Computed example of a mutant assay.
Amino acid sequence: MPSIYDFSLPSLDGKTINFSDYQGRPILLVNTASKCGFTPQYEGLQHLWSVYGREKDNGLAIIGIPSNEFGNQEPGSSDEIGAFCHRNYGVSFPMAAKASVRGPDAIPLFKWLRKEGGFLSTPRWNFYKYLINGQGHLDKWYTSLTKPEGKRIEHAVQRLLLDC
């Protein structure tokens, strides 16, 4: 059965995000957008990254994956998205290039997430969150309404970090 380590994505800066580089670490994937009511969640994501992530051994990895599928709320280019995230929210965690996250055009990573989490895990809006365990499989998923800095996600991250 495939794991997240079998996937890679182009990054906003033109490089490649290889999920195999995060083997053994929990990973939080988030489909993002710059012009959404949930966009301020970038602040909570950056907080999680600052506290539990960065380049610490076995620390939490956070990957933002911009998508323009919900209300055309991510219309910008890679350069515009990166500048917006850094300027407005100080985002320093890795960001993938804009991608399709649902339906027949979804990138393979999101098709895999749907298989792992079931039909209800398919993003219905921006800022769905997917927490991957240290073995490379979906642990939990959260809707846009769940704040990244909230207790539900923080406790799940702490639990997974103890397992690493």
Rank of each mutant, 00 (worst) to 15 (best):
I4Y: 00
D6N: 12
S8A: 09
P10A: 06
P10H: 15
L12Q: 05
L12C: 08
D13I: 15
G14M: 10
G14H: 14
K15M: 03
I17M: 08
N18C: 02
S20V: 04
Y22V: 10
V30E: 00
V30A: 00
N31H: 01
S34D: 05
K35F: 10
C36F: 03
F38Y: 12
T39W: 04
T39L: 06
P40Y: 05
Q41H: 08
Q41F: 04
Q41E: 07
E43Q: 07
E43W: 05
E43A: 08
G44V: 08
H47M: 10
V51I: 13
Y52G: 13
K56G: 06
N58F: 09
G59L: 06
L60F: 09
A61G: 01
I62S: 04
I62E: 03
N68S: 07
F70D: 14
F70G: 12
G71T: 11
G71F: 11
G71C: 14
N72S: 12
Q73H: 08
Q73G: 11
Q73R: 08
P75V: 01
S77R: 04
S78W: 04
S78E: 15
E80I: 04
A83E: 14
A83V: 12
F84W: 06
C85K: 09
R87M: 10
Y89D: 04
P94I: 00
A97C: 09
S100D: 15
S100R: 04
V101Q: 02
V101H: 03
V101L: 02
V101C: 04
G103I: 14
P104T: 13
A106I: 02
F110M: 00
F110E: 01
K111F: 01
L113E: 00
R114Q: 07
E116H: 02
S121C: 09
N126W: 10
Y128L: 05
Y128S: 06
Y130T: 00
L131K: 08
I132V: 07
G134W: 02
Q135W: 05
G136T: 08
H137R: 15
K140F: 02
T146A: 12
K147L: 05
K151E: 14
I153H: 07
I153T: 03
I153D: 02
H155E: 12
H155D: 14
H155F: 13
H155R: 13
A156K: 15
Q158E: 13
L160Y: 13
L161W: 15
L161P: 12
D163C: 09
C164V: 12
C164K: 02
